[in-house]
Computed example of a mutant assay.
Amino acid sequence: MITLEEFAAKIGVSAATVSSVFNNRSRERRISEKTVDYVNAQSRKYGYQPNVAARRLRVHKDMQVCELAVLTAYESPAAVSTNIVHALEQAVSRNYPHITSFVEIVMFHRNRIKDIPGILDGSRYNGAVITNTGFDDDRFFEENNISYPVVFLGRDLPGYNCVSEDARHIGREAARELLEGSRCRRPVVLAPREELLTQTTKARVDGFMERCEEAGVPGEILWAEDVSVPAGLSAVGGFLPSKQMDGLFCVSDYLAVGAYSAIKEKGLGIASDIAVIGVGDFALGEYLDPSLTAFLRVDKDECAARMLLEQLFDADARLVSRVFNASLVPRASSLR
C-alpha cells in the first residue's frame, strides 16, 4: 500500500493538500474545488485510501476502547443490522481480546445518508460497516472521501473495502430454477418499490428479468412497499387472484415470508400452485412450512467485520473487494 506522500507525488500535488482533502478541510485551507475534485478522482483511479487506522493507533497507542458503528437504512429489516453487530462483537472478542468495543447502530433514510453528522470525518466512531445504501448514497461516497476505516456490505464501490455477492447471478439462477426446475410459465419477481432498490436488489431483479427474456418467457416485476413481511403479504395478496403467477422469486426472504401468508390466504398451495424462491438472508427459511428454496447463506457479515478490524489494527491492511458466489439450495417450496 502506498503512503500519503507517495500518492501525493504520483498525482503531482503536496502531501498537505491530499491530507486536507481526505480530512474534509479543503475549505478551511482554501483549496479550490477543482483541486479537490482532482484529488478525489485520482484516489478512486488508483484505489488509494489514507491509512487512517495506523495514524490513529499512533496517536492513541494505548487505546483500549474501540467505538464502531453499523450504518443501515430505516427501510431495511432490523435483523440485518443486529447480525452485523453480533459479527463485530464476536470478531473483536476472538481476535483482539485486549480491546473493549462498543458498537452503535446508526439509522438513516435511504438515499439520505449524507444527513448523518460526521459521516465523512469520523468524529463519532473509529470505524463503520455501511449497508443498505441507495443509489444516491453510493454516489455521495463515490464523490467524497471518508477519513476513517469503513467496509461497504452488499455493494461494490470503487476505492473502498467492500463485501458483496454476485447478485445478478442469483437473479438469473432463480429464474432458471423456476423455468426449468419448476416448469413455470408465469414467473414473477417480488421487489421493493424502485426508489428503495439497492445495488444488490436491483441486480437481482435485472438478472431475473434478463434470464426470463433469454428463455422467451415473459417475466413480471411485482413492486412491494418495502422489504418487510407485511409488504410482501400486501403485494402478493393484491396481485392474486386477479392476476396469475406460477413462480415467485423474492429479492428478500422477509418478502417471501409475507408472500407465503398471502398465497395460503388465497387457498393456493406453495410449490403445487406457486413455486417460491428466496435469497437466503433469513436464517429460519428452512424451517418455514414448506421449507423455502433459497441460496446458500454466506456469512458476509463475518467477512465485513474481519475486514474492518484489519483496517483498524493492521498497518499492512490492503484495499479489498470481496465478491461471494451463492449456490441454490432446492427445498420444498419449489419442488414439483
Results as ranks from 00 to 15, higher is better:
D37I: 06
V151D: 02
D246K: 07
P330F: 05
D253F: 03
S123A: 02
R30L: 09
S19M: 03
R44S: 15
N325K: 13
A87H: 06
E67D: 10
I84F: 01
E195S: 12
V70E: 06
Y48W: 10
V59P: 00
V251N: 07
P330R: 12
L157Q: 04
L240S: 09
E28I: 08
R297A: 07
S14V: 14
S19T: 08
I31V: 08
K61Q: 12
T100I: 06
A304S: 13
V257F: 03
R318P: 00
A167E: 12
C184I: 08
E225P: 01
F152G: 10
E220H: 07
G127Y: 03
G12N: 05
L335D: 14
V70A: 13
R58A: 13
A326W: 02
P330L: 14
L197G: 11
R58L: 04
E195Q: 08
C184D: 06
A275P: 14
L309R: 06
S76R: 05
Y46T: 09
L178V: 11
T3W: 00
V70R: 04
P218V: 08
S334G: 11
T198C: 04
D37H: 10
A259Y: 08
A15K: 15
I84S: 00
T131Q: 09
E173L: 10
I99N: 11
D316H: 04
P149F: 00
V39R: 01
R112E: 14
T17D: 06
L284H: 12
L335R: 14
P117D: 10
D136T: 07
V276D: 02
G171D: 07
R124N: 12
T100F: 01
E28R: 14
H86L: 02
E310I: 01
L57W: 12
Y96K: 09
L268M: 15
I263T: 11
D156F: 11
D273L: 09
S252M: 03
I130V: 15
L292Q: 08
E302C: 13
E210F: 05
I2L: 09
L268R: 15
F295V: 10
F140E: 09
I105Q: 07
Y125W: 11
A231K: 03
V39A: 02
L255M: 15
A78G: 08
Y38V: 04
E67I: 06
K45T: 15
D226M: 08
I130D: 02
E213A: 15
D206C: 04
S333P: 06
S327C: 01
P192W: 00
E89R: 11
A53Q: 10
A15L: 03
C66D: 04
P158V: 06
V129K: 00
N24S: 13
D62H: 13
C66S: 10
V13P: 02
R297I: 02
D289R: 14
K300N: 10
R112L: 13
V36I: 07
I221V: 15
A128E: 08
R185C: 09
T17W: 01
R336D: 05
Y287Q: 05
E220F: 03
D299A: 03
S291H: 07
V13F: 01
K34R: 15
P50S: 08
